[in-house]
């Protein structure tokens, strides 16, 4: 299997000018992900888990190290140094991000949102409509909700929509930022099923979860973080 992502010696700190402070959040992080793998990141709140994912997605600008991504379009590219245009392209076509919050255009229906994600990739309207419908069915969103605004959805429904919006693009790399936080047990099980399905389909994923039981036997490797550092790596058979 080919390596799709290599995070090398990644460091990130935030400078807060009005307090005259520099907060070091990540120190010398090294993670390698092969195609089709599911990598878990765990650790206490504030240990820097989300920061790693946000650096990969380029929501945060890291200071040191490299984030090497093997892109279909650009070949091997350092995401830290990629231009904004390249990052926008990769977000539209290759890298998906799912957080626990659904942050979307208000007053757009669930169907419209998924359709929009397909249109962004340059596909035509009819194809986008068909793909959106397929996804809504696939993630078992009640057909009564398709033409509703997500603001009226339950937590589990919002999450499924969130994942559907990312998955409809068939990303090569999917980043999951605590998607099960604040979900009840039944909804968590649903997410677990979805992840198992994505693993079967060969999607490469990096996910953050608080719930260790939830992650057990799902990931190929689990990276435990503490205080901005990777403290140990747990292989699948020891999870």
């Amino acid at each position: 299997m080919e390596e799709i992502l290599a995070v090398e010696h990644l460091s990130k700190s935030f400078t807060i000018h009005n307090l005259g402070k520099q907060i070091e959040v990540l120190r010398d992080i090294n993670i390698a992900v092969k195609e089709g793998e599911f990598i878990g990141i765990t650790g206490k709140s504030g240990s820097g888990k989300s920061t790693v994912l946000k650096c990969v997605y380029r929501t945060y600008a890291p200071q040191e190290g490299g984030i090497w991504y093997n892109s279909k379009e650009f070949g091997l590219i350092n995401l830290m140094k990629a231009s904004d245009r390249q990052v926008i392209y990769l977000r539209k076509h290759e890298i998906g991000y799912v957080s626990q919050f659904l942050n979307v255009m208000p007053r757009t229906t669930a169907w419209g949102l998924i359709k929009q994600a397909v249109l962004e990739m340059g596909h035509e309207e009819n194809y986008a409509k068909r793909e959106a419908e397929k996804m809504l069915k696939h993630f078992e969103l009640d057909s009564g909700l398709w033409d509703s605004y997500p603001v009226t959805f339950s937590g589990g429904e919002k999450l499924r929509l969130n994942i559907a919006m990312a998955m409809v693009k068939h990303p090569r790399l999917l980043l999951l930022d605590e998607p099960t936080a604040s979900l009840d047990f039944a909804s968590k099980l649903k997410v677990k099923e979805l992840i198992e399905q994505l693993i079967k389909e060969g999607t490469t994923m990096m996910g953050i979860f608080h719930d260790l039981e939830f992650m057990a036997n799902l990931c190929n490797r689990r990276y435990e973080m503490s205080d901005g550092k990777l403290v140990y790596i747990i292989p699948k058979n020891l999870q």
Partner: peptide, 13 residues
């Protein structure tokens, strides 16, 4: 920069 980066990780004072 990217809008989410400007809003979540602004660099300038």
């Amino acid at each position: 920069g990217l809008t989410d980066q400007i809003l979540e990780d602004p660099q300038h004072n």
